[in-house]
């Protein structure tokens, strides 16, 4: 791999002090390292944040579930607290990548990377998450800005993600048979006053599907979506799926998610 310097930060202050526009934070490294290997990215320094104690852990308090940025997918998947509070998030984590990716990959890394077909961004939008960073709190609706683009400023570090616990929820993913990333993934979360439907894989970055939300807010049932036809404009079309097919999948998966909501 291209040269870089590796640092281990002991605390957030040290990490942010080392950071610049030429550096990257290293958590699981599941995306960063292959990108460097393939010479698609180059950094002067990688700042390992996994030794920072405050950044890991799972905590339920009242109406929210807070997960530290460097918490691994496998730990989220197996956590009793997560299963009890938001079971759909546990199964989402259990479906990311493969067991080895889940043993290394982290929630903070996934969100900061904002891959257009990643799973966690959909959870953030659907579950009204707040992203706590080294300098502020960002609502997830304002966090995901574009393909691989977030509201994070240079050197800003995600500390934790705080999800609102819904009444019921479900995430359904239709994986790409090659990469196993989502061709489309739909996260449906029903709260007392609203229904959120977040979609990943279908556009250049995660979004909420207001057309479906509107209908489900009035009538939270699978059949209520039967007469809906989604527009295909803005949807991804690539070798793996056309826009038409993605539009169809959004609706199909949304129905499945509603039917399986727990």
């Amino acid at each position: 791999m291209k040269n870089f310097s590796y640092h281990t930060a002991k605390n957030i202050k040290e990490a942010t002090k080392l950071a610049s526009s030429k550096t990257a934070y290293l958590a699981g490294g599941m995306t960063t390292l292959p990108a460097i290997k393939l010479r698609m990215a180059a950094y002067s320094d990688l700042i390992d944040i996994k030794k920072i104690k405050d950044l890991t852990g799972i905590k339920v308090s009242g109406k929210t579930l807070k997960i530290g940025a460097t918490t691994k997918h496998a730990d989220v998947a197996s956590s009793k607290e997560v299963k009890k509070s938001i079971a759909s998030l546990s199964s989402l984590a259990d479906g990311i990548g493969d067991p080895q990716v889940r043993n290394r990959g982290t929630i903070g890394g996934s969100i900061a990377n904002n891959d257009p077909s990643a799973d966690y961004p959909a959870a953030c939008l659907a579950l009204n998450a707040n992203i706590h960073t080294s300098s502020r709190k960002i609502e997830s609706s304002k966090f995901f800005k574009g393909m691989f683009e977030t509201a994070l400023k240079s050197g800003e570090l995600i500390q934790s993600v705080e999800f609102q616990i819904p009444e019921k929820s479900c995430y359904v993913k239709f994986p790409n048979p090659a990469s196993r990333y989502a061709i489309v993934g739909v996260y449906v979360a029903k709260f007392k006053s609203e229904v959120n439907v977040a979609v990943t894989g279908a556009k250049s970055y995660v979004f909420r599907c207001e057309e479906i939300e509107k209908i489900l807010s009035k009538n939270f049932s699978e059949s209520s979506l039967n007469s809906l036809n989604l527009k295909t404009s803005g949807l991804n079309a690539d070798i793996h799926a056309s826009a038409d097919y993605r539009a169809h999948l959004i609706l199909t998966l949304a129905k499945k998610a509603v039917a399986s909501c727990k």
């Binding site: 790409n176 048979p177 090659a178 990469s179 990333y181 070798i239 793996h240």
Partner: peptide, 19 residues
């Protein structure tokens, strides 16, 4: 194995070629 019109192999990794 898929080539686009310009002759670029668009299935050149396990991310895109379904093993």
């Amino acid at each position: 194995a898929h080539y686009d019109k310009s002759g670029q192999l668009t299935t050149a990794s396990y991310m895109d070629y379904a093993m």
